[in-house]
């Protein structure tokens, strides 16, 4: 009897040969390498982003000659940038030196990276909410204290405050998506790791 005409054996074989699937292992190794590159890019982007926003905030403070409201918002945002970067580097510490390591090492590191991503995404979300809690009263105070000026030139309020609110709205949507993606990536990775190994 040929194996093709033996569906029971064919079914068992298909099930059996999913254990230690080399294709899944290759996909896993490729995924880990890709994640390593993504990690390095992420570090550069985050650092540049923080530097850029610090420069913009400094310019704003200089242009407004240190107006208390602007200075307070700038300080709050700068503190946030500092805390964020410190946390980002802290979470990533020791996860970069993986070149030439074994797949097992990659798997371990990728698992830690994804856990860090998940944790950072949650931290960013919570920090954004906290920042929102500072920015909204700040903007309200600014509107009230410069009411006369904004009545004379309403476009200032529309442009200046509108942009600030829009930035926060975009951040809100982006961070929420990032949080979901980080959780989904972790789950997918664990599935792949489970398929590629008998562990």
């Amino acid at each position: 009897m040929t194996h093709e005409s033996d569906p029971e054996l064919a079914g068992w074989r298909a099930e059996w040969q999913t254990f230690g699937d080399p294709a899944a292992l290759d996909a896993l190794a490729e995924r880990c390498t890709r994640d390593g590159r993504k990690l390095r890019r992420g570090l550069v982007y985050e650092t540049l982003g923080a530097a850029f926003s610090t420069v913009v905030l400094t310019l704003l403070v200089v242009r407004t000659r240190g107006t208390p409201a602007v200075a307070a918002i700038a300080v709050a945002l700068s503190i946030f940038n500092g805390v964020w970067l410190a946390r980002y580097y802290g979470e990533r510490w020791g996860l970069l030196a993986v070149e030439g390591a074994s797949v097992d090492r990659y798997v371990e590191l990728t698992r830690r990276r994804l856990r860090a991503d998940d944790s950072l995404a949650r931290f960013a979300w919570n920090a954004h909410l906290a920042l929102f809690g500072v920015v909204i009263p700040g903007i309200t105070w600014l509107l009230l204290s410069h009411a006369e000026q904004y009545r004379r030139a309403p476009w200032r309020a529309a442009v200046g405050l509108g942009v600030a609110l829009m930035v926060h709205a975009v951040l809100f949507v982006w961070l929420r998506r990032k949080r979901r993606l980080a959780a989904a990536a972790r789950e997918r990775f664990e599935g792949l790791a489970a398929r590629s190994s008998l562990e």
């Binding site: 040969q17 230690g20 008998l198």
Partner: peptide, 8 residues
């Protein structure tokens, strides 16, 4: 590698 891992 894969058949051996299953055998083990």
């Amino acid at each position: 590698a894969a058949p051996l891992s299953r055998l083990f």
